[in-house]
């Protein structure tokens, strides 16, 4: 959360430090970004191996912790997971499996991990997508108005609310909403089993189930966007071009909309993408509370094992998603900010 306070200057900082190449900038820029994203992906893959294969020592012992298992079962499990081989052989198998899209077999669900992940990806995308969109709209709207009328009562109330929501663990907010709206909204899951199978009723049903989880996730995320938008607009407020705009006789409303906001929007937009990891963190907690059948709930279910292959798969997918969002942030920044394009 401190990123809000210190993070704004980072992107610009970085561009300056790196000394962006001249000439056929666009292509080189693109290649550079893709290259560093690939390197990050490689690091994620290695980290995934380190975390789930090397640190546990014997993953099979970790996975069967606290359960009675015979030595034969242990040996069988070891063979099936391939952990009885030497470490380098395991690493080669792991990489090979990844390239083939094979992430191993779940220990709890007795199904291929890749299937589980693809099945759970949709609900998470729906939840995270809706919540992010809502949060952006709310955060920008409140943030802009707070900064524009700084220290007004509106500013104090909206910033105070945002800070409070931000200080709340998301799962707790979820629990509170669950109690408050018990009976009004469904307490969990994604659809009722007795809903008619036609598209219209199904969509309505999912939307009905989506309300509470989406609200919970939005609450914390919008607070973050609000604070970022507010402080980046405050930085623009004293700029001379605003005085010029006012001197031209523009209405206050136009000064804000056409001059101040577009400039203040830049750091915020980038941060929306950079903070995507935080949204995913929230999704894990929120999905657990509302048993929303996404990747977060899958992670929670896998923890009870712990089902290491599933945890590993979920880790890889979530980390890769964040890296993808970062590449998008870089590209978007270039499109939006002519100053970066010119260098």
């Amino acid at each position: 959360m401190s990123d809000v306070l210190t993070g704004i200057e980072q992107p610009a900082d970085e561009e300056a430090a790196r000394g962006a190449p001249r000439g056929s900038g666009a292509v080189r820029f693109l290649l550079g970004k893709l290259g560093s994203a690939l390197l990050s992906l490689a690091l994620v893959v290695v980290l995934g191996f380190l975390l789930f294969r090397m640190i546990p020592g014997d993953p099979v012992v970790t996975m069967t912790r606290g359960r009675p298992v015979s030595p034969e079962q242990l040996a069988e499990l070891r063979e099936r997971l391939g952990v009885d081989k030497p470490m380098w052989q395991q690493f080669v198998d792991y990489i090979g499996g990844l390239l083939r899209g094979d992430l191993g077999t779940s220990y709890l669900f007795q199904r291929p991990v890749a299937d589980l992940l693809t099945e759970r990806l949709g609900p998470t995308l729906l939840l995270v997508g809706t919540a992010t969109l809502l949060a952006i709209v709310l955060g920008l709207w409140f943030g802009i108005r707070s900064a524009w009328r700084r220290n007004s009562r509106f500013d104090k109330v909206s910033t105070g609310t945002a800070l409070t929501l931000w200080s709340m663990p998301q799962f707790w907010l979820g629990l509170l909403l669950l109690i408050a709206f018990a009976g009004v909204f469904p307490s969990g899951g994604m659809r009722y089993s007795d809903t008619p199978p036609d598209v219209f009723s199904q969509t309505l049903d999912v939307a009905y189930h989506l309300v509470l989880p989406c609200l919970t996730l939005t609450a914390a995320v919008y607070a973050q966007y609000l604070l970022v938008m507010r402080s980046s607009l405050l930085e623009e407020m004293n700029a001379e071009y605003l005085t010029t705009a006012r001197a031209k006789g523009l209405r206050d409303d136009l000064v804000r909309r056409r001059h101040a906001v577009p400039n203040a929007l830049l750091p915020t937009v980038t941060l929306v993408f950079l903070q995507f990891g935080m949204v995913l963190n929230g999704a894990v907690a929120v999905e657990t509370v509302y048993s929303w059948p996404g990747l977060g709930l899958l992670t929670y279910e896998a923890l009870s094992g712990p089902d290491l292959p599933v945890l590993q798969g979920a880790f890889l997918v979530l980390a890769a998603a964040v890296i993808l969002m970062n590449v998008l942030a870089d590209l978007l920044y270039r499109v939006l900010d002519p100053r970066v394009r010119a260098t």
């Binding site: 970790t62 995913l280 945890l311 970062n326």
Partner: peptide
Amino acid sequence: VLPTLVLAIALSAVL
């Protein structure tokens, strides 16, 4: 950029 909570979950699951 890594999701902190996911990384922390992974670590506390294996330790």
